[in-house]
């Protein structure tokens, strides 16, 4: 609702600000003023209206900042608590961003709502770059998109490579069950050798480094561990339970994916709130500055008209006396 109101305010606001910068307002006001013949007062109606709308926008952005701040607090705790879950997997299977495989799936995590700074475009930019890096002859690289905003950006030029779009993830508070259902859905619908999850990791309210986590398919894990390389150590592990090694690795890869996704989605949601908070903070500050300038203009105009009237009265009186 706040967004709609903001948009409405914005529409009212745009024709006023776009033609000329602030300093030009005063002169244009005077020249365009259609006063009745003989009356020389200056109307301040336009400036007053604009002050009102700027004040309203400021109120909205302030409220949005407060909302984002309280949401951030809740989700930050969750995100920080979920940071333990992916680390054992990275310790065991290593971090393999450079792995060279045929079928790459890039999972872009973004938000459903806008007004949160550049985090969604960063995700998209990174995903496009990764796509460029992983595609080539005999190689295939596709997108799975989470969130409305990345969808809107990627659908424009990479429509053919999009395999799956999932939106409205954050309607309910995020929990592991929900994310593992989602992870299941993704795994059912794509064929992959490596999944690359692109998200913004929450670092502080002003820094969200884009991050790429890689999850390998069980076949890739097996191949890589046999050929030595990064996963060479995996061969020395004894495997307990399950019928075959392949089965265990399959379960392991699925579990790893759901855990990494869970952390990624939480980190991204946290970054979103952080970015929204700072974006709304700077726009309320901007609105405040604009309001100050407008108030100055308004008072100066008023003062000028009073001075003019006084001069007229005084000079009239002195002419009569003289």
């Amino acid at each position: 609702m706040a967004m709609a109101a903001l948009r409405r305010e914005g529409r009212r606001f745009v024709p006023l600000i776009s033609p000329q910068p602030i300093s030009a307002v005063q002169s244009s006001l005077i020249s365009q003023e259609q006063a009745p013949l003989g009356v020389r007062s200056i109307s301040t109606q336009i400036v007053r209206n604009r002050m009102k709308s700027v004040k309203n926008i400021q109120k909205i952005t302030k409220a949005m900042k407060m909302v984002a701040a309280s949401k951030l607090r809740a989700i930050q705790i969750k995100a920080e608590n979920s940071r333990g879950i992916w680390q054992p997997f990275t310790a065991l299977l290593g971090d393999n961003p450079s792995v060279d495989v045929k079928k790459n799936v890039i999972i872009t995590v973004s938000s459903d709502k806008g007004l949160c700074g550049g985090i969604n475009s960063t995700s998209v930019k990174m995903s496009k770059a990764l796509h460029k890096l992983t595609s080539g002859p005999e190689k295939q690289s596709t997108y799975v998109i989470l969130g409305e905003k990345a969808k809107a950006q990627l659908i424009r030029d990479s429509k053919n490579n999009i395999e799956l779009c999932i939106t409205e993830l954050q309607r309910n508070p995020l929990n592991y069950t929900q994310v593992s259902v989602l992870a299941d859905d993704i795994l059912k619908n794509v064929e992959y050798d490596a999944l690359r999850i692109v998200f913004n990791k929450f670092h502080s309210v002003v820094s969200f480094p884009p991050t790429v986590a890689t999850v390998l398919s069980p076949e890739t894990v097996e191949r890589e561990s046999e050929s030595g390389g990064n996963l060479g150590e995996l061969d020395s592990y004894e495997i307990e339970g399950g019928e075959t090694k392949g089965e265990i690795l399959q379960n392991l890869a699925e579990f790893q994916f759901s855990c990494v996704m869970f952390n990624a989605v939480l980190e991204n949601a946290c970054s979103e709130q952080g970015a929204r908070m700072s974006a709304m903070d700077s726009s309320s500050r901007n609105a405040g500055e604009m309001l100050d300038r407008l108030t100055l203009t308004y008072n100066r105009t008023r003062q000028a008209s009073i001075t003019t009237e006084l001069i007229e009265i005084i000079s009239g009186a002195s002419a009569l006396k003289g």
Binding site: A91, D95, S98, M126, A129, L133, K201, T211, A213, T214
Partner: peptide
């Protein structure tokens, strides 16, 4: 190896972080 190949293909964007940075 990842950072090198990234810089070769996409010189104008900094390479993203990977989980091992945070561990």
């Amino acid at each position: 190896g990842f950072i090198e190949s990234w810089k070769k293909v996409i010189p104008n964007i900094d390479p993203p972080k990977t989980p091992s940075h945070f561990m």
